[in-house]
Amino acid sequence: MAYAYLFKYIIIGDTGVGKSCLLLQFTDKRFQPVHDLTIGVEFGARMITIDGKQIKLQIWDTAGQESFRSITRSYYRGAAGALLVYDITRRDTFNHLTTWLEDARQHSNSNMVIMLIGNKSDLESRREVKKEEGEAFAREHGLIFMETSAKTASNVEEAFINTAKEIYEKIQEGVFDINNEANGIKIGPQHAATNATHTGNQGGQQAGGGCC
């Protein structure tokens, strides 16, 4: 399928906060209530549209367990966006955010867009972390913030898409070097053709469309 841009995402956060469920809800529109520990990383992909442009999201869902931390660190550098997830019903997962953020900032490229996500918003009765606290943390550290529920799919779509929007805006502003794939951004075959040859745009586009 033809796409204008390809963004690489990673999902990070403590174990059991619902990272894999968020991904599953986003890619398959399903919810799996049984907790199945992620081993290392798992891959998922989906196409979205922003500003009329097709954008392919490639998402690496990482294991939250401490023992996998060294493996998951390898994914920071090549990602354009990160979803940092905590569980609103478990304060400790919120308390660990600083560690996660330090880790991410240390290993990623400086332009990586980080979206803070308070997951399990459907479990209002068991809430331990107030929405305001999440908002405050995000404000303090310059993150985007959202509360989601992978179970009810509330805000899941928005979380992924808003992150993509932020990246897209950064591209428009010229903050990202789109020709360096190590940033987790790739221009689609169609787009690259039009970018490369301003004259003879149509030919390039046709060729691009044909190959996909």
Binding site: V41, S74, Y75, G78
Partner: peptide, 15 residues
């Protein structure tokens, strides 16, 4: 080694 295979793939090895 599955974990390394995935990282290598993540680093655009296929491309």
């Amino acid at each position: 080694n599955g974990a390394i295979q995935k990282i290598v793939a993540f680093e655009n090895a296929f491309e």
